[in-house]
Write a protein that binds this DNA or RNA. Sequence first.
DNA 1: TCTCCTGGTCGAATCGATTCGAGGCATGCC
DNA 2: GGCATGCCTCGAATCGATTCGACCAGGAGA
Lengths: 394, 394
Amino acid sequence: MAAARRPTLARVAELAGVSVSTASLAFSGAGPITPDTRGRVLQAARQLGYAGPNPLGRQLRSGRSGIVGVVIGDQLARAFSDPVAIPVLDGLVSTLGEHGLGVLLIPGVPSPDPSRSVDPLIETAAMDVAVLVWGIGASDATFDALCRRGVPVVIGEGRRVPGVPLVGVDDAEGTAAAVEHLLALGHSRIAEITLPLDQSGRSGPLDGARLGQVQRAPTAHRLRGVRARVEPVASWEAEASLVEQGRAGALALLAGLPAGRPAPGPEPAGRPAVAGPTEPGAEPAPGPGEAIADRAGMRPTAIVAHSDLLAAGALLAARDLGLRVPEDLSITGFDGLDLPWLAPDVLTSVHQPLEEKGAALGRAAINLLAGEEPEVVTLGVRLVVGSTTGPAPR
Amino acid sequence: MAAARRPTLARVAELAGVSVSTASLAFSGAGPITPDTRGRVLQAARQLGYAGPNPLGRQLRSGRSGIVGVVIGDQLARAFSDPVAIPVLDGLVSTLGEHGLGVLLIPGVPSPDPSRSVDPLIETAAMDVAVLVWGIGASDATFDALCRRGVPVVIGEGRRVPGVPLVGVDDAEGTAAAVEHLLALGHSRIAEITLPLDQSGRSGPLDGARLGQVQRAPTAHRLRGVRARVEPVASWEAEASLVEQGRAGALALLAGLPAGRPAPGPEPAGRPAVAGPTEPGAEPAPGPGEAIADRAGMRPTAIVAHSDLLAAGALLAARDLGLRVPEDLSITGFDGLDLPWLAPDVLTSVHQPLEEKGAALGRAAINLLAGEEPEVVTLGVRLVVGSTTGPAPR
DNA sequence: TCTCCTGGTCGAATCGATTCGAGGCATGCC
DNA sequence: GGCATGCCTCGAATCGATTCGACCAGGAGA
């Protein structure tokens, strides 16, 4: 039994008694056509149940698929669970949608995969541009594969690659502002909970050696921003931007240490170290067995977290430990998420324009398609003071 | 300056000294070919920087785009913010990915839109199947448009449409189980916070009249499941599945009412009403001015929420009101989300297999493509008792 | 030695639309 | 009345690959 195939433009033209080219004109609207003829064609189309030109034919001819591949780093589920990702994706999809472009979801895969295999879609799917949303590492199989195919790429939050548009926020500026705020409040013992430095899945105390291994661009910038103002008394690397990780980090940084004022130790507390080419390795990193939380044996009075979820976890940990926020401990986040379940607390946080970031990614993709020169866009951030920061305890 | 276009299969064949058809064979692997010839073709391809057949040509020929359109109801941002959506989407994308299919994200639009316009992608994008993830209403412009185009459709969580595969969970069974659990604990004054009944954005007390207007399928089933076991003493309709809405609903249901045992009023408290064709309108709906929370003027001892986020909001509201959970108030949710920030509480909740639901949607789409008969799949749910339910207060 | 078979290669048709240049017809102007 | 001018319409080429049947050569079997 032959299944009746969908009618084609040719059949419609035939029924309408016109040529295929005329019928095409009737639909595309490009080129002159008598309203009468057009009407006859549309009438014939309706009669045959023809719902417009087959996208496949049109795409082949035009060489454009109207599809933007969006490569979601890591696992899809994890990417989507990240509340930071949502507005970005939303801004991206909206902006592209306004220009008639669709978003094809492509799962990325962890970079350090030995087989360097990428999702088959990257090799075979039709797309006019690709957007790598969560940045690319030093060497990225996905990026390479796309280049090989000749698919233009837009990078979100990653390292700069010559000739490739890049969209990011001013990460360093953001963490620097947070630290500055804390310094102004009199804090000197500032600890830090960082975003992952790479895709290794590692978590735990962050020492100088590890610091040199940072691969993810936003993390690197946020680390730099902090260190542009102060050398943290302790730093803890999270495995991912998750509440649980923030809690674990804060517990590690805070637990079992007496509160108190800066020890009169050899190290000048909270010395503001301007970032620069300081001797690496000269840094007195804590030894293996040493308490990670505090080189001087005393509790930090503030925690700078690289993300709001990490900060939220830190806040919960503080509550668990019976610490008052901000009286005993100040906490800053990064992202500017709305986290009503932290009520009555509102995070002091560096707000980044997430939806605008998505929109900027979309515009970059569109510009690329239009043949414009690739640009590097850096969006501004803004520290918004909430209820989780206050004067340093005396 | 003529931009050098990407090399085509024809150029590769030419360079390799074979015919186009042979070159095609070398890539597709279909049909017999000498390893030697194949090697020559691949060599030529490498030399030209040819990264495999152009998807557009292949797709036109095969009539398949390898793309599954996933229509996300409402706004994209809202859909993504819903933690229920994430695992479903993840299961869907994974399952489709294993079969080489990509997911094209398509924003749905609110049904009651007067212009009945749909996203242009629905009319013009290439796709082999479409999945309507968040169900379709009684009449749905999106669904109609897809049918007109001849794109086969899979429905997730919606009404049954003959000839269209449907995937859902046993909603009625779920809420019934939750209520049964509460009844077994001795609760008789059970209130309810419901999912939206339609896309109107309405929220507030739910009376009998409104109950008849329910359009969204899962909501209807969950309402039915509750009423199969008990007639709630009060019901509050949320505008969306959000923590804030749950909090508002719970405050409305609980605020300002004295705790206490069932009033010896004319109405038998907690009468278990079996669902059935009871006289509509005979229902003693609360009058306009009446306290919505409680027909007998007393606080409910349990709240059945249609989703975990609503339940979480209710829990926060209870904490705000100084009510102990579960000593003063029991709360049940629906979905089985992991909500660590509710710690130390763990919701008693009806767990639904979210990722499996996504996978089932994917399988349904694949089966449809393979020409198999459309099926209705209903996945089971399971009540998991947490710390938010306990014996009714005496 | 002839025929049959089979594995490998090639030609040509096909998928469904877009687009460019040519041509036809009517109008307007000289 | 003839010619230039537009406005529509049409034919044909094109996008890049897949696939079916034809064809050819070489080996096996009779």
